[in-house]
Simulated scan of single mutants.
Amino acid sequence: MKLFRLAAVLAVLAGPASAQMPNINLMQDAPSKSPEEKAAEAEREKAYKETLKKIPDSKASSDPWGGMRAEQPKQPAAPKASAATSAPKKTKSGTAAN
C-alpha cells in the first residue's frame, strides 16, 4: 500500500515538471516548391474558383421543418344565402318550447 501511495505522489509531482520541458521541433521545414509545382497549384486554384462561380445561388427556404408541417388551412367559402334559408332549423330533443 505504501508503494502505491509513493507512485501516486511521484506521478503528481512529475506532471508539472514535464510541462517545463522546452519545445523541440525535430522535423525539418518542408522543402520549397519547384516552379512547376507552384504553377500546377495555381492552375488547380484557378479551376477551383471557376467551378465555384458556376454553382447557382440557392433560393430555397432555410426552414428545416418546412416539409413536416401541414399546409396552412384554407379559409372556408362563405355559405350561400339560398342554402341557409332552405334548410329547416333543428331543435334539441327533450326541451320544452313554451
Rank of each mutant, 00 (worst) to 15 (best):
M1Q: 09
M1F: 08
K2Q: 12
F4K: 13
F4G: 11
F4M: 11
F4S: 10
R5D: 08
R5V: 08
A7W: 10
A7V: 09
A7L: 12
A8N: 08
V9A: 14
V9F: 10
V9T: 12
V9G: 07
L10V: 11
V12P: 00
V12W: 10
V12Q: 05
V12R: 05
L13R: 03
A14N: 05
P16V: 06
P16W: 07
P16S: 12
S18A: 10
S18H: 09
A19Y: 05
A19C: 13
A19R: 13
A19M: 13
Q20A: 15
Q20V: 11
P22C: 03
N23F: 14
N23H: 08
I24S: 03
I24Q: 05
N25K: 14
M27P: 02
Q28R: 14
Q28C: 06
A30M: 12
P31L: 06
P31S: 09
S32Q: 14
S32I: 07
S32Y: 04
K33L: 15
P35M: 05
P35A: 12
E36S: 12
E36P: 03
K38N: 11
A39M: 06
E41G: 03
E41D: 15
E41M: 12
A42S: 04
A42W: 02
R44H: 01
R44T: 10
E45G: 09
E45P: 00
K46I: 02
K46D: 06
A47Q: 14
A47S: 09
Y48F: 15
K49G: 02
K49E: 13
T51V: 00
L52D: 05
K54Y: 02
P56F: 02
D57V: 11
D63E: 13
D63G: 09
P64V: 12
P64I: 09
W65T: 03
W65F: 13
W65D: 09
M68L: 15
R69C: 02
R69E: 04
R69W: 04
A70I: 03
A70M: 10
E71M: 07
Q72C: 01
P73T: 08
K74Y: 01
P76H: 04
P76M: 06
P76K: 05
A77F: 02
P79K: 01
P79T: 01
A81L: 11
A81G: 07
A81F: 06
A81P: 02
S82P: 00
A83G: 08
A83M: 03
A83L: 05
A83Q: 09
A83N: 07
A84S: 04
A84V: 15
T85L: 06
S86D: 05
P88L: 04
K89V: 10
K92Y: 01
K92A: 14
S93F: 04
S93G: 10
G94Y: 01
G94S: 03
G94F: 01
G94P: 00
G94C: 00
A96I: 04
A97N: 12
A97P: 01
A97Y: 00
N98I: 03
